[in-house]
């Protein structure tokens, strides 16, 4: 099971490496996951994103690749953990509450883009 997923920090390394295959000087910027320091990613999709990064750098005009993560469901539900911290750092009581956070959708990244290929769910379209 360990190898079914990609560690989040490893994704950053893989994405940058994919961006530099065509031209080592290509800059790769990943945005949208800054608040996450650890986690597991679906490795098949990591592979696809690596492939797409390589594909997009086939255009010799591309100097930089941006990989921007926005929630697919723009209305996210978080659990807020309200903790009372004692002087020694311990927590005697916590209250949990839900918090809905709606955020700008992917269209904000597409305002001036000439061509958009939507490959979400592309695994199902494989021939």
């Amino acid at each position: 099971m360990k190898y079914m997923h990609t560690k989040l920090p490893d994704f950053y390394i893989k994405a940058e490496a994919a961006g530099k295959v065509a031209r080592p000087e290509t800059e790769v910027e990943i945005r949208g996951l800054e608040s996450y320091t650890s986690g597991k990613m679906a490795s098949l999709r990591v592979g696809r994103i690596e492939e797409y990064i390589r594909e997009i750098t086939q255009d010799p005009g591309v100097k930089k690749v941006e990989v921007v993560f926005v929630p697919h469901n723009p209305e996210a539900i978080f659990t807020a953990v309200i903790k009372g911290i004692q002087a020694d750092g311990s927590c005697k009581k916590a209250i949990l509450e839900e918090m809905a956070l709606s955020v700008p959708t992917e269209e904000c990244e597409l305002f001036d883009v000439e061509e958009v290929e939507d490959r979400r769910g592309s695994g199902r379209q494989q021939r």
Partner: peptide, 11 residues
């Protein structure tokens, strides 16, 4: 389930 009766596009 958690989505409200809302539309979202861009901003």
């Amino acid at each position: 389930g958690h989505n409200e009766n809302m539309t979202l596009t861009g901003r």
